[in-house]
Amino acid sequence: MRDSVRLGRVAGFPVSAHWSVGVILLLLAWVLAGGVLPQTAPGHSAATYWLGGLVGSFLLLCSLLAHELAHAVVARRAGVEVEGVTLWLFGGVATFRSEAPSPRDDLRIAVAGPLTSLAVALGSGLAWVALDRSPGLDLAAGVTGWLSTINLVLAVFNMVPGAPLDGGRVLRAVLWARTGDRERAAVSATRAGRAMGYALVGLGLVFLLLGDPVGGVWTVLIGWFILAAANAEQEATVTRTLLGAVLVRDVMSSPVVTADPALSVEDLIERQVLSGRHSAYPVVDEDGRVVGLVTLRQLRTVPAQRRDVTRVRDVVLPLSEVATAAPTEPLPGLLPRLTPGSGRRALVLDEDRLVGIVTLADVSRTVEARALLTHPA
């Protein structure tokens, strides 16, 4: 996800936070400090309520992270490659680079998150019971009670049978197991998600007409998010179906124009960039080893007065951070790796030897061409 800040690694997974996390953190703190806590724990100062609100909103973000990490851990055990976890305005998302190998694994991955939220709700509820009986801890009791309720709501809401919610993944797994057709099951799950998205948008509009602007706006936003995500997932499913048994080597561009790591940025721009049509160049050393990738965006970060003394090796994106693929790999399996972080391109390596490059434009062109075979004009 763009505009995200890397926070570190948890359980071996990269964890990032979108800038919108700051917005939701303050919004939740305001809800707690301005309404929930004064009702459940009256008699405290405004500063105390804000402190409790900030702690409560931070704990909720931690529980959302636990929810997504549960998906990631179970996915890793099933052999699914996990790119990382990102927190953002509507919660979080665990990004996978491959698909579950079986309906059973798909089901386990899907239910891991809601079960974690239920566990957090139960633990917070027990803490609320203990704290509520202790004198002087009414504020902490209010925070834990709220945390328990929110996690319970999240667990139940996420199990609604419509993609991209976890309940939609469960529906997909069940239909996959019943029909043996994963793509068909995915389309059915996304259709259910679209229906739910439209329903929530409509419900939000009703709230607005009844004079509840806050509830109405949030319901419309959630419905819009579900609708957009379901549409995107359905499009991805159709794309995988169209690509079928297409291999990476069938769409890759070859031969590839490369860059020398010892070359200065100034020379690279004058010799190759200005006269070429490429926006990225794989960097290959004199021994034929792929060092990484340099893009026009990286070159723009070098000040003009430093280009003649800055080498390509100084600005190269390491190979460990670049998407790669084997020429015989099925193309649909590469799609999850063509992310903005990878520049939406992948280097094709055959036993560490660079043989081609695949961009999202190559994939789009292939999809459009194959669509002509099934949907002639």
Rank of each mutant, 00 (worst) to 15 (best):
G113I: 09
A189F: 12
L25P: 00
V129K: 00
R97Q: 12
A186P: 00
D106Q: 08
R370P: 04
G193C: 14
S253L: 06
C62T: 14
A163P: 01
R182F: 09
L32G: 10
V283C: 02
V248C: 05
G84E: 05
D3R: 06
P161K: 12
E270P: 02
T258Q: 03
A46I: 01
P330R: 04
V153P: 01
E321F: 00
L147E: 00
L203T: 09
L299H: 00
G343E: 08
L171F: 07
M1G: 11
H67F: 07
E368G: 05
A41M: 04
G56Y: 13
S45A: 11
G215N: 08
A173D: 00
A17H: 05
W19V: 15
G343Q: 09
L64K: 13
M252G: 01
W224L: 14
G92L: 08
P164E: 09
S188W: 11
A326I: 02
G56Q: 10
P135T: 02
R104I: 10
R300D: 14
H18F: 13
L152G: 15
G35A: 13
A47D: 05
L268I: 02
E266S: 12
G292F: 06
T310Y: 06
R313I: 11
T219Y: 04
R77T: 07
V170D: 11
G142Y: 13
A177S: 12
S117N: 15
D350M: 03
L64R: 10
R306Q: 10
V214S: 01
G180P: 08
V201G: 12
L137I: 00
V15K: 11
V5S: 08
D250Q: 14
V291Y: 06
L89K: 06
G333W: 10
V80F: 04
V23I: 15
V294F: 00
T86R: 02
V93P: 10
V31D: 08
I24C: 03
V358F: 13
P376N: 05
V82L: 11
L165Q: 13
G22C: 12
T258E: 10
M252Q: 06
S254G: 07
V23W: 15
E233R: 01
F13S: 08
L317Q: 15
S275P: 00
R133G: 15
C62S: 15
L28I: 10
E81G: 12
L221T: 03
A280Q: 05
G216P: 05
V55T: 02
W218V: 07
A11G: 03
L69Q: 00
V265W: 11
E351R: 11
V309T: 14
T295Q: 10
L299R: 02
D352P: 01
E83I: 11
M252E: 03
A326D: 11
L247R: 15
L242P: 02
D352A: 07
L210F: 13
V217I: 15
P327E: 14
S275H: 07
G292T: 09
P261S: 14
P213F: 14
I24Y: 07
A29Y: 09
S188T: 11
S45W: 07
A229Q: 03
L175S: 04
V129N: 00
A66G: 12
V358S: 05
A259P: 05
E286Q: 09
E329K: 06
A155W: 01
W146I: 08
V153A: 13
F207T: 01
P330T: 05
V238C: 00
L131D: 02
H67M: 10
L338R: 03
P327S: 14
P327G: 09
V316P: 01
G197M: 06
M196I: 12
V316W: 10
R353W: 07
